[in-house]
Amino acid sequence: MSIITWIIVGLIAGALAKWLMPGNDGGGWLATCGLGIAGSFAGGFLGSLLGIGASGFVGTIVVATVGALVLLFIYNRFIR
């Protein structure tokens, strides 16, 4: 996938991660969308390393959302 696609998917994944893991985040929606973009890159990279390639748009959203949820969890636990 292209980088632009991962950024768009990351924005969607960040919104989904915020919806799935509600709470008081320090950065609000902007930081969560940034974590979503980073999570989509991390999820896509780790998925390709492990051979769990996301096929189709829904699979890509799932991989990116899982990556965003992991980064959001780490952010809420350790950084905040």
Score class of each variant (00 low, 15 high):
42 A>T: 11
42 A>N: 03
57 F>A: 14
69 L>F: 08
67 G>E: 02
9 V>P: 01
62 V>M: 11
22 P>T: 04
43 G>Y: 06
35 L>S: 05
46 L>Y: 07
6 W>M: 12
29 W>Q: 01
61 I>S: 01
32 T>N: 13
71 L>G: 02
21 M>K: 07
20 L>T: 06
16 L>R: 05
14 G>L: 04
35 L>Q: 05
60 T>R: 14
17 A>H: 09
65 T>M: 03
49 L>E: 12
19 W>C: 01
12 I>N: 02
38 A>C: 07
69 L>H: 07
41 F>E: 00
54 A>V: 10
38 A>M: 10
53 G>R: 12
68 A>E: 02
52 I>W: 15
17 A>V: 08
32 T>Y: 01
42 A>E: 02
15 A>H: 00
24 N>K: 15
51 G>F: 11
57 F>N: 10
53 G>A: 15
79 I>W: 15
53 G>K: 13
71 L>E: 04
23 G>Y: 10
28 G>T: 06
63 V>L: 13
20 L>C: 03
80 R>I: 13
58 V>L: 15
62 V>N: 02
44 G>R: 03
19 W>D: 00
58 V>F: 14
42 A>V: 14
55 S>E: 15
61 I>E: 03
14 G>S: 06
55 S>V: 15
13 A>W: 08
62 V>G: 02
1 M>K: 13
31 A>Q: 09
15 A>V: 09
19 W>E: 09
4 I>M: 10
62 V>H: 03
23 G>L: 11
60 T>F: 09
16 L>Q: 05
51 G>N: 09
44 G>Q: 03
60 T>D: 08
73 F>P: 00
63 V>P: 00
38 A>V: 08
24 N>D: 15
45 F>C: 07
4 I>C: 01
77 R>S: 12
10 G>V: 02
30 L>C: 00
19 W>Y: 13
67 G>F: 05
26 G>H: 09
52 I>D: 04
6 W>L: 13
12 I>Q: 01
67 G>M: 06
58 V>C: 00
57 F>R: 03
77 R>C: 08
8 I>D: 00
23 G>M: 12
20 L>A: 15
11 L>H: 04
30 L>F: 14
78 F>E: 10
53 G>M: 04
7 I>C: 08
70 V>Y: 09
64 A>G: 13
9 V>I: 15
